[in-house]
Write a protein that binds this DNA or RNA. Structure first.
Length: 572
DNA sequence: GCCGTTTTCGGCCCGACTGTTTTCAGTCG
């Protein structure tokens, strides 16, 4: 069972109840849904282990909701949910996914205009029926029409690797306004989430007016979505939404905390604040009774007054970080300076853009102690996989280059295909000659789960395969991950001493955050690689590092944080 | 529906912006 399935039902119940003007219950259902969604353990397992009492330990779950969870686990249904669904037409709940249209208005549109789905809504807008409704107007109709447009474009999220440079560029442009104190990107970009929905920019200044002016008139603005004295939203020409908020200097920490989120993390912090007699908002932490300012200049200060150590943004998902913080068990996250080498990169020998020597020089410039050159094996035809003969030629060249560049150790490696039957694309005889072998799947992606799992596990049993490259094979926005039993992969990786890769290519970020955390829990050691196909892609490794941090990785979980001598001593 | 060093009853995270209001509800983050 997926926790997210159950959470989805609770969210939907909340929406339906809200449409019926039920008070408070919607919030209760949503709260429980959020807790279940971010629960590291499967709800079914919780119930199996600890029964109903275990379920009630989940925050926001009490007697009533625990009973509903049990009902769902045992009968696969929730009676009340089925009843509620009967009361509202199918697909009406889809309407509230339209930006600008919430449960209350959706219900009103249904009641007054008989709108049951997106098609009905489009027709009603075309006939200007909405504008005549009391509570609505020409503007509301226009807004919903615009929301419908955005909805039609899909809820496609933007890759972190795409959003980060855009955010940086926007900040540079806004910075030109005089009188800016701090300016920083917040939101999911600051939490380094693999994909982001919008960009949040936070600014401190005495006078917000010129900043709002500048922000809403940036060269790439397609449309101003909202404009107020301290907060505005714009849509960029690339359809990315950007929010900007201006606050006073003394609120900077509280505001940064607030706008970094996640929403779920913030809600828990505010609940802690209340219990301590405070009120927490983007303006600061205040005494609930006297309204006196308690903290807010820095995030550290806010956390401290709440009785917590500083929690890094990457962990703020309400996925156990607050409990860990309370118990002093927060991980010391791996940092960019800890990385001593990069163990996956391509050259013109296969599908890279630069020569082996150019890659080496670029790696030296980045200050690495060691790298591995890892071009493709023959069966990856589209990537000009190397025949054994060409590989041997490259090995000789690497040997020569190693003599020329003594500041870095060059591991002669290869990214070798794991064939559909689980055997490797080069003979063991050749693999034996290599310093570093990555095993990767690049073909037959659609194998059934058990076959794919066996395929990858068999590769790990090969004594020369040191690491599995991009273990899930996903390309965000383009290709689903292959169907593979990750738990089994983690167990085999642990058993055979094979590393698993965190591939840093922007659409890959593979392993992903939750898998990284699970792999570490399973005792697996990881490797962060750029998988660079160009000298300019070596820097992608920072994206993999961010993902590792989101997966609670410490320095000791990452093999390429070891200095060369220790790294070389790691035996399979 | 949940929850308790304000409360077992009566609260529930907090605030900005918008549009339709003539003092506030809906939506969003």
């Amino acid at each position: 069972m997926l926790n997210s399935d159950l959470a989805k039902i609770f969210y939907e119940i909340a929406d339906i109840l809200e449409m019926q003007h039920v008070q408070w219950k919607p919030a209760a259902y949503r709260k429980a849904a959020r807790a279940i969604e971010s629960l590291p353990e499967d709800v079914a397992d919780v119930f199996k282990k600890k029964g109903v009492e275990g379920l009630k330990e989940i925050s926001g779950v009490g007697e009533g909701l625990a009973a509903k969870i049990v009902e769902y686990l045992t009968t696969k249904r929730i009676k009340e949910y089925d009843e509620l669904k009967k009361k509202i037409p199918r697909h009406l709940s889809i309407l509230i996914d339209i930006p600008g249209l919430g449960p209350k208005h959706a219900e009103l549109l249904h009641k007054k205009l008989g709108i049951n789905n997106i098609e009905d809504l489009k027709k009603a807008i075309a006939a200007h029926k909405l504008a005549k409704l009391s509570g609505f107007g020409a503007k509301s109709e226009e807004n919903i029409a615009k929301g419908l447009e955005l909805f039609a474009q899909g809820t496609a999220r933007t890759l972190l690797g795409t959003a980060l440079p855009i955010a940086e560029a926007l900040i540079m442009q806004i910075k030109q306004v005089k009188g800016i104190g701090n300016i920083e990107v917040a939101g999911s970009v600051r939490r380094r989430k693999e994909t982001i929905g919008d960009i949040d920019i936070l600014v401190t200044a005495k006078d917000p007016k010129p900043i709002m002016e500048r922000f809403t008139h940036l060269p790439d603005v397609k449309r101003i979505m909202a404009q107020g004295p301290t907060k505005s939203s714009i849509l960029l020409k690339n359809n990315l939404q950007v929010d900007c908020r201006v606050l006073e200097e003394k609120s900077y920490g509280a505001a940064l905390n607030y706008f970094t989120g996640s929403k779920e993390h913030n809600i828990v912090l505010r609940e802690i604040a209340i219990k301590k007699g405070f009120k927490l908002s983007e303006y600061g932490l205040f005494n609930r009774k006297t309204n006196a300012f308690v903290a807010g200049r820095t995030e550290e200060e806010v956390y401290k007054k709440l009785g917590l150590p500083y929690i890094p943004p990457e962990l703020r998902e309400n996925a156990g970080e607050i409990e860990a913080a309370r118990q002093g068990k927060l991980p010391v996250l791996v940092e960019e300076k800890d990385l001593k080498g990069d163990l996956h990169m391509h050259t013109t020998y296969s599908d890279g853009n630069n020569s082996t020597e150019e890659m080496i020089k670029a790696a030296i410039a980045r200050g690495y102690e060691y790298i591995a050159i890892t071009d493709h094996s023959p069966s990856v035809h589209i990537a000009h996989g190397m025949t054994e003969k060409r590989l041997v030629k490259q090995l000789a060249e690497i040997e020569k280059l190693q003599k020329k560049y003594k500041d870095i150790t060059i591991l002669a490696g290869s990214e070798v295909d794991i064939l559909p039957n689980g055997s490797m694309d080069y003979s063991d005889k050749i693999l034996k000659r290599l310093d570093w072998v990555i095993g990767s799947v690049h073909s037959a992606f659609k194998m059934p789960r058990d076959k794919m799992t066996r395929r990858i596990c068999k590769a790990m049993e090969n004594p020369y395969v040191r690491v599995i490259g991009h273990p899930s094979g996903r390309l965000m926005g383009k290709r689903e991950p292959y169907d593979v039993d990750m738990k089994a992969v983690f167990q085999m990786a642990k058993k055979t001493g094979t590393f698993l890769e965190i591939d840093s290519q922007p659409p890959r970020l593979d392993l992903k955050d939750v898998h990284i955390r699970a792999a570490i829990d399973a005792g697996v050691t990881l490797v962060i690689d750029s998988d660079a196909h160009d000298v300019n892609q070596l820097r992608f490794i920072s994206l993999g590092l961010m993902t590792a941090r989101r997966g609670w990785a410490t320095k000791k979980d990452i093999a390429n944080c070891l200095p060369l001598d220790k790294f070389l001593k790691l035996k399979k």
